[in-house]
């Protein structure tokens, strides 16, 4: 990746040394700050973290007890989000990647809409969700409403990853299939999608990560209620909202907030590792 082709002998002036110093200082400082952020959260949260923390209900507005209902609510929100985002995302990505000739004009419009969607701030997704899903569709504060809002939000990411996964498949597969008179349906479902599956999995995992990290879009859609949700139409508190609420609205909630943040970071790290693992396995398999 890097191109260190500067010869060692080239004359060095004081701006050269300045730049050398500045880049290294920056890189070291950023690394230190990163460690500071992570370690201070680990330091504050690790003491609280235990199996019991994961498996019990919060008590005393979250100052004591665990985060079990938040984990369940988060999981249910993610399930709703994926159940909607996956078919929409896969269908759209297939159209954009594989029918770019026959549906060129339509594809351009869809792409424009997706570019716009990718730029929408998450709080605006929250506003939209609270009007459209909660009010107009009558879902109220519910896991369903929150999951649907997140589905809208992760669509651009999911579609981009899926489209790239499909486009990275060699054209020779499509040519070979076309030359055999195979239908588009067979070509896609029997040849291209199985071959592109690892790439699609990476996109899926990254989208789950994005949804897991989101807070602002959930405040007015899935709500704050911190007990176990009875159904998808019940309100439920996501893990990220729990962190927000404990640190902002509950004096003395910092330690449990840190522990929850640690759980969230750990989940994201696992997802990240999973994505890296899938793409590594995939690239070695291709070789």
């Amino acid at each position: 990746m890097a191109s260190k082709i500067f010869s060692q002998s080239s004359s060095k002036t004081w701006p050269d040394f300045l730049l050398l110093g500045a880049t290294w200082t920056t890189a070291i400082s950023i690394t230190v700050i990163f460690l500071w952020v992570v370690l201070s959260i680990v330091g504050q949260g690790l003491g609280q973290l235990s199996l019991e923390f994961l498996l019990t209900e919060p008590m005393n507005a979250g100052r004591d007890g665990g985060i079990a209902p938040m984990l369940i609510s988060t999981l249910l929100i993610l399930v709703v989000c994926l159940a909607v985002a996956l078919p929409l995302g896969l269908g759209t990505a297939l159209l954009l990647a594989e029918f770019s000739v026959s549906d060129k004009r339509f594809g351009q419009w869809v792409r424009r809409s997706l570019d716009f969607l990718a730029g929408v701030p998450s709080i605006v997704f929250g506003l939209f969700g609270s009007v459209f899903f909660s009010k107009i569709l009558g879902l109220g504060f519910s896991l369903l409403s929150g999951g649907l809002t997140l589905a809208c939000m992760v669509l651009p990411l999911l579609i981009r990853a899926t489209e790239e996964g499909l486009r990275s498949q060699p054209a020779s597969y499509r040519q070979g299939a076309a030359a055999l008179g195979l239908s588009k349906t067979t070509t896609l479902f029997k040849v291209l999608l199985p071959a592109a599956l690892p790439g699609l999995m990476v996109g899926l995992v990254l989208s789950v990560g994005r949804a897991l990290a989101e807070t602002a879009a959930l405040i007015f859609t899935s709500g704050y209620v911190d007990r176990f949700p009875a159904s998808l139409l019940d309100s439920g508190r996501a893990l990220s909202i729990h962190i927000f609420d404990l640190s902002m609205n509950v004096p003395g909630g910092d330690h449990n907030a840190a522990a929850s943040a640690l759980v969230l970071l750990a989940l994201l790290l696992i997802l990240n590792g999973l994505a890296a693992f899938i793409s590594l396995r995939w690239s070695t398999k291709i070789k």
Binding site: P170, S172, Y173, Q175, G176, A177, A179, K190, V191, P194, A195
Partner: peptide, 11 residues
């Protein structure tokens, strides 16, 4: 049709 580079499906 047969192509210049062999193109079996990844199956």
């Amino acid at each position: 049709m047969i192509f210049q580079r062999p193109n079996p499906f990844p199956l």
